[in-house]
Design a protein around this nucleic acid. Structure first.
Lengths: 138, 138
DNA sequence: TTTGTTATTGCAAATGATTTGCATTTGCAT
DNA sequence: ATGCAAATGCAAATCATTTGCAATAACAAA
């Protein structure tokens, strides 16, 4: 991680944001990051979190993602293999999906359309097991 | 369209919103709808547009979509065959893609995970032809 | 270690999209 | 025509995110 931070000062806040992000298995909101960082550094402010995230995004260390009908952005570390998620429309839980059906499709579309494709976004929506149980009982 | 509107009153504003949406080939923002409706009904207010959209979504006549690092929601009519888009990261233009690689994948994931999948969202990002030309010249 | 430059920070206020309260108007069933 | 609930316009509220500014901290150079 560190080697990418050229031109930046190693602030305590940023170190802590990175530590928090490393422990996440699903994308988190700025406020969630804020609350987790605050446990270690109580004086941190939310705007600082936003500025750190902004910088990490510009360094391509962090990804921003928005989710259908949730109007807050979520962030996650850029990893070697990117992930997709199933999102429960009831409890909003995000469950990672292992594989990605898009990559080969991208090539096909690129050839057919001449569009220079650089990325994609893909999410599945539905009801998770736990919520399905609940609605059966009710 | 009309038959779905049970329990609702046929207001002029809603008729006009539906008419506007029928003429779109790509999802539009609330403000874009507002401006188009205002051409016919100058007294309409933006909050009314938001309320009409909300109702149309709950009736499953309209879909809401958010797009990568664009913080305004976009709306489109639910159609028999759903569409996906390529989005140019430079000019923000949305170009419809004909086919959908997700549907068969959905079934596979459903079986493997027990997740009851009801829908998905999928977008491609890249540079459109026009923007590619421009950056070559520069 | 001290010093100077500049990135980083906290705070409060600004912004932009969307939502809501409320009093008024309208559609439609009776 | 009458009454009631849905729909509306307006202004104010809300929520996530951004920004201005003055104070602080990191780090390179002396």
């Amino acid at each position: 991680m560190q080697q990418k931070l050229r031109g930046c000062r190693a602030s305590k806040n940023r170190e802590e944001v990175l530590k928090v992000l490393e422990h996440q298995s699903c994308p988190v909101t700025a406020e969630e990051i804020y609350n987790l960082v605050k446990e270690e550094i109580p004086t941190v402010s939310l705007s600082t979190i936003y500025r750190i995230i902004e910088k990490l995004i510009s360094l391509e260390i962090v990804n921003k993602a928005t989710t259908l009908d949730d109007n807050r952005a979520r962030y996650e570390l850029v990893r070697e293999t990117h992930k997709h998620y199933m999102i429960c429309t009831k409890c909003r839980k995000m469950i990672p999906i292992d594989c990605c059906p898009i990559e080969e499709f991208e090539n096909k579309v690129a050839v057919e359309t001449g569009f220079n494709i650089t990325g994609h976004k893909f999410e599945l929506y539905g009801e998770c097991k736990a919520c399905a149980e609940k609605s059966k009982k009710a």
